[in-house]
Simulated assay, not measured.
Amino acid sequence: MTLKHLLSRVVPPFMGLALLVGIWSLVSITSTNNFPNPTDTFWQAVDVFSNPFYSNGPNDQGVGWNVWSSLKRVALGFGLAALVGIPLGFLIGRFEFLSRMFNPLISLLRPVSPLAWLPIGLLVFKGANPAAIWTIFICSIWPMVINTAVGVQRVPQDYMNVARVLNLSEWKIVSKILFPAVLPYMLTGVRLAVGTAWLVIVAAEMLTGGVGIGFWVWDEWNNLNVKNIIIAIFVIGIVGLVLEYALIKLATAFTFEEVQS
């Protein structure tokens, strides 16, 4: 890798971060509400991350435990959504009758705000934790259903004609023809869904309480600790970035050009 290429990869991100810190510093200087500056927030972050897994009771735990609790909820809700959404997307894309049946329902329910589903979860499941998982499930299922169905519908008709001539079973059609062709669309849906799930859990935990990064933000606001709120914002962004990067690497592990691009 040449020096010019290295600089072209490294310098722009650092310039973006410098711009962010500069604007942040300007806001803290001109603010009349004692808005924390980058230096004070940095040293607060050092203190926060010096012991991220302390536990002083159910409502006083380190940032590490809060992130871990949120990730567990996301994994469970997202996993359930994948188990339901991907097969449902295959069925909707494969059979026109099911497509006509489910498309109005998806169009009706998909635009609903994530937090509108939270009271329904609290009513049905009688608990904050399952209600949060339900909210993640119902909001992250739509990208996987829609993208998978679109991928199935865009499979070239020639492939299906060959399958018909060879008299392949439905399982053979799905496993040998549809799945490889639909995989890029499916992974796109998964990437969109996990981003949605991570956004939703932060908002849901603010309302339901308990251990979680969203509750940690709300608790710090009640304590008027703005520095910890800013730290939490960066933690949420970094975790979301890591999740996105992990799914991109998963996608590029396959040899499909559509996925790699």
Rank of each mutant, 00 (worst) to 15 (best):
G89P: 06
L105V: 15
L168H: 01
W198L: 06
V124W: 14
P184I: 09
A116S: 11
F95P: 04
I141N: 01
A253C: 06
A128H: 00
G62E: 08
F14S: 03
M15T: 11
A193T: 03
P130C: 09
G64R: 00
I233K: 07
F53L: 14
L83K: 04
L71C: 01
N66T: 11
A45N: 08
W134Y: 15
L7A: 14
L7H: 02
N56Y: 14
A246L: 15
S140M: 08
A75R: 03
P111N: 02
V239M: 12
S50G: 12
F137H: 06
A204H: 05
A251D: 15
N161M: 13
R100M: 09
G127C: 06
G127R: 05
V46R: 08
M160L: 15
L105R: 00
I141C: 05
W218V: 09
D47M: 11
L183Q: 12
S25Y: 10
V10H: 11
I141S: 02
F102E: 03
L207T: 06
S55T: 06
H5L: 12
V145H: 05
M206A: 08
M206Q: 13
Y54G: 03
K72Y: 02
L199T: 09
I138F: 06
F125I: 04
S261H: 09
I233P: 01
I236K: 04
G16F: 07
W68G: 13
P184V: 10
L243F: 01
S8I: 08
P143G: 10
L243T: 00
S140R: 06
L207C: 01
G89R: 07
